[in-house]
Design a protein around this nucleic acid. Sequence first.
DNA 1: TATATAATTAGCTATACAGCTAATTATGTA
DNA 2: TACATAATTAGCTGTATAGCTAATTATATA
Lengths: 133, 133
Amino acid sequence: MDKTLLKLKALADRNRFRIFGALTQYKELCACQITELLQVSGATVSRHLGILVTAGLVKSRKESRWVYFALDEGCDGIDNILEWLLPRLHQSDQMQMDLEVLDGIMAVTKEDLCRQQRGEACCPVQKKEKGDG
Amino acid sequence: MDKTLLKLKALADRNRFRIFGALTQYKELCACQITELLQVSGATVSRHLGILVTAGLVKSRKESRWVYFALDEGCDGIDNILEWLLPRLHQSDQMQMDLEVLDGIMAVTKEDLCRQQRGEACCPVQKKEKGDG
DNA sequence: TATATAATTAGCTATACAGCTAATTATGTA
DNA sequence: TACATAATTAGCTGTATAGCTAATTATATA
């Protein structure tokens, strides 16, 4: 029961539920892409992802500096969970909006996305200077 | 999505999950019986039940002074939820213990149960005196 | 080897909520 | 009609947690 309760708790948060929903539509997503979707700090996203991983719902894979997250298809009960949640996700306004945003996110490279997140333009004019005055 | 999130939040608490599990095994349970099972105050149980009812998972029926609670079989997604949770409940230690306790609870009348909960013996010696010295 | 950077962890704050007791409500009974 | 009682609501307290920024870690690159 504790494992199941852990899954319920992991899903019982709006932002984690949104992450779960996004991962039902994309084979895998990078931490920075999820950060862009939720519009919260990277630290917060990292903690949310940790909770989903600990619950067994999500798995991660590191590739150089990037970490990719995906639904763990080996998760106990995942088929039943998806049978319940997928139809409800598909008819939710939040999910519709998220899919549109994700569409835009996937249209740029991770490199450009992270540049934007650091507040740089897509083609940084100056690289090492910290001041702007 | 909000409705689904509400259900997830309702189930993502150990005591509410225990109530839900108990209601999968009994057609209906009285508030005082659930109070006896969980061993928390009646006020707390009442709030938990309210959350389950608000989420649509549980319905209630009042009969004189007693209120009975049951799974709401008309709840959206309940079939999928049960397909996921029932097998996990059945193999959980907590559920095993709860079913044993419920066995004992159902063996006495609600009247006697509530008498016990008020700290009276099964056959109260004095009815109106408040002091015991 | 020094610097840059994606992600995580540490440390903090504000909010949500599970628990309690006391008060109230709704109902039955002497 | 006054009292008893099952349940709920109000009001409070302590704990858990979602969010933040800053520090740290792991990796790539100049």
